[in-house]
Simulated assay, not measured.
Amino acid sequence: MKPTYRLLAVLLVAISALPAAAQDWQPTEKIDHYNVNGTTPMALYQSIGERGPKLSLGRVIAHTTFKLTWQRDYQQQGAACVLATAKPRLIITYTLPKPAQKLAPDVAAKWKAFYDGIVEHEKLHGEFMRDLTQQIQDVSIGLRDENDPGCKKVRAALQAQLKPISDAHVARHSEYDRVEMSPGGAVHQLILSFLNP
């Protein structure tokens, strides 16, 4: 059976410039569940199709979103400006299905294997988001212009650095989903294993 629902990563980035310090950071991870009805694998899967998160391309099994904001300390040093620190605040949210009814032991075991596989897939999207954040921090700290009163040049230089990083990040997510959800891919196999007797 060919799967009709896909996992998608929704990339929500908000970047703000606020004074701060400290380079050490840890993301905050959240899990939001949505209820699915049914007591058989097929009924549960059909409920996912009816109740799963609705994105631009339709309903999906699960998805990962993130919000990324920054506290940045631009320091004027005479005529020069340096971006001394850049501290991220990354919130990753995983939206995942959860059965609304108690399942028989055999169905519960199949659900657990299916759910655990979906979580593993989504967690890697979360790792990609951590990587993105670290890459942005790496190109931010120490960015300097020797003739930049008001720090306008350094801010513009940072924005120029962010686009290729963001583009590569989006491409990485897309390629990961393409491989995982193609016939024979890990997500495709999860769905088949869940639905087949």
Rank of each mutant, 00 (worst) to 15 (best):
P183E: 09
T65C: 08
M42P: 03
R59N: 07
A171E: 12
E29T: 07
Y45D: 05
P97Q: 02
L83F: 01
L124I: 09
D167W: 00
T4C: 12
M42E: 10
Q75D: 03
Y34I: 00
L143M: 09
H33I: 01
L55H: 06
A9N: 10
V154D: 10
Y5Q: 03
A168E: 15
G52Y: 01
L124C: 12
R178G: 09
A113V: 01
D131W: 06
F194Q: 01
A20L: 14
R172S: 05
P27K: 07
Q137V: 02
G117W: 00
S140Y: 15
L7A: 03
V139S: 13
L90G: 05
Y176K: 04
R59K: 15
Q135S: 11
V10T: 14
H188E: 15
A108L: 01
L12G: 09
A109P: 05
V107H: 03
T64E: 11
V13A: 11
E175V: 13
L143Q: 04
N35A: 09
T85G: 15
L162V: 15
V13D: 11
S193L: 10
P97D: 09
I118P: 00
L103N: 02
A43Q: 00
V154Q: 04
D106I: 08
R144I: 15
A14R: 07
L158S: 04
A157S: 15
T93P: 01
K102E: 14
V179G: 03
K123T: 04
A62R: 13
T69A: 14
L192G: 02
L162P: 10
A86N: 10
H169Q: 05
R178E: 14
Q46I: 13
I61W: 01
K30G: 04
S182G: 14
P3L: 03
G150M: 04
H169C: 13
A156D: 10
G150S: 03
E120C: 01
H121A: 02
D145S: 10
T69H: 08
L162C: 06
Y115S: 12
R72N: 10
D32C: 10
A100P: 03
T133E: 06
D106P: 03
I141V: 15
Y34H: 02
L57K: 10
I15F: 15
V119W: 02
A104E: 04
P149C: 08
Y176I: 09
E122I: 06
D167I: 09
L124K: 15
A109V: 08
S16R: 07
E50F: 13
I118E: 12
R6N: 13
V36F: 05
R178K: 06
E122K: 09
H63C: 02
T39W: 00
A156M: 11
D116G: 07
P97N: 02
G184L: 05
K102Q: 13
S47N: 13
H169P: 11
S166L: 05
E122P: 09
P99L: 01
Q159G: 13
V119F: 15
A9Y: 07
L55V: 14
G185E: 13
P197F: 11
K110T: 03
A20W: 12
L83W: 01
I92K: 10
Q135V: 10
